[in-house]
Design a binder for these strands. Structure first.
Lengths: 228, 228
DNA sequence: CGTCCATTTGAGGTGGATCAACCCTAGTGG
DNA sequence: CCACTAGGGTTGATCCACCTCAAATGGACG
């Protein structure tokens, strides 16, 4: 399951902050004096499976993770993409409800779920933070239900680009870690439809490519308009 | 906004239990000695709007409620249907993220959000319950994303029937409170497609009607098979 | 008994899926 | 350093599940 070195968690030494400014997870770990451990997964490796016991809670240090559900015939719905700083695998029930996989080589820090649960019984602020993180996931899911149930292919792709722009744009350039199939399975589309929508946005001058996964947005306002 | 009598909450005197056996909300209200008030809304009345301050948390005593998000052109996605015993309107953030409306005449009991928040800072068990309720909503949303993103029309309708069978079947008969348009907006379909799927299931002997909204399931196994 | 919606049913259109080449590029090994 | 290869991405042609538009039917309620 775990592939690389096990080492006690240390505060990043280079001062580089995580992408999400309010690092609730880090605060919790600090408050409750929990032991966080680093692990690494290689590209395409499964981190945990659906319905497996939820033993750990994870935060991404570097890399990218997708979580998904499968139908028996292989149809897949990706629930979320997780990027550096994001927490995933946090469950209030004893098992994971989606499968998590590393999209690219990924390092996480993790704490035992039982430690968090214990900390939450002692410190109400920890309990509140766990609730807020789950509520944040719920908000994302509610927005995504609207996208999946009611938006057109172009609106979905526009929403995806704006989400990724917000979450991972460094220096105006977006470096997508995931392939077209992953994007399609996130948006409820086929990879061909995603590709066609991106090509059309390129033709219209809304974005530029430098390699299929390096995207520069040229007209965010146009994307926002399409986002309905 | 509120239409009928205001009365202090009382434990049901007739011993009739709510449909959900583990009444977490009731337990919380009891533990924290909160004041719950009853209110009634008439059919189609709005209970709260998207982005409004989340002042109250609600539990349905009788009736049915839908929560939805709208796109600017009127496309609607219903996130959930709420039935007697269900809690809705619980937010960790200061505002409601969907609009809630009574589908039929509905009575709720409600408590102030601020009271719950306060109770959660005193009693860790209350805090844990709030988290669990939100996590339950998240689980429903994750399952619904799979439905909206990847299931066929027939699979969606089968899933809907099984969900409603589980949640409101009294004596083998399902009395749906919502119209075909609501079902469509919940399943990401048009009302005509919902109607056609139901007609096909009737033709195949999987279910019987006695009035468009009174449904008896004749072959649950068949529905489960379609649910993929 | 009549009116008004909700629902059903029919006919035709279409957005996105499917099937099928083809292309590009990063990685590999010579 | 370059040729080769494999996997990801693009593009084209066709199909079909579901949507749209339209009309008929039915049930609830005055």
């Amino acid at each position: 399951m775990f592939t690389q070195s096990v080492s006690p968690y240390k505060v990043p030494h280079d001062g580089k902050p995580h992408t999400n400014i309010g690092d609730t997870f880090g605060i919790i770990v600090g408050r409750a004096s929990l032991v966080a451990t680093e692990f690494s997964y290689s590209k395409e490796e499964e981190i945990y499976g659906e319905d497996e016991p939820a033993e750990f809670v994870y935060q991404i240090v570097r890399g990218a993770v997708r979580t998904h559900k499968l139908l028996s015939d292989g149809r897949r719905q990706i629930g979320a993409f997780h990027l550096p700083g994001d927490v995933f695998g946090l469950e209030a029930s004893p098992t994971h409800r989606l499968t998590a996989e590393a999209i690219i080589d990924t390092t996480v820090r993790l704490v035992k779920r039982s430690s968090l649960e214990h900390a939450a019984t002692i410190d109400v602020e920890v309990a509140r933070s766990l609730w807020r993180m789950t509520a944040g996931d719920l908000q994302h899911a509610e927005n995504h239900m609207l996208l999946l149930g009611r938006k057109t292919a172009m609106e979905r792709v526009a929403a995806f680009l704006l989400e990724m722009d917000r979450r991972l744009s460094a220096a105006a350039m977006m470096a997508l870690p995931m392939c077209r199939r992953d994007i399609g399975d996130y948006l409820g589309l086929t990879l061909e439809t995603v590709s066609r929508a991106l090509s059309e946005l390129h033709d219209r001058g809304t974005l530029d490519f430098s390699g299929a996964r390096q995207i520069v947005l040229r007209n965010r306002q146009h994307l926002r308009t399409m986002n309905a």
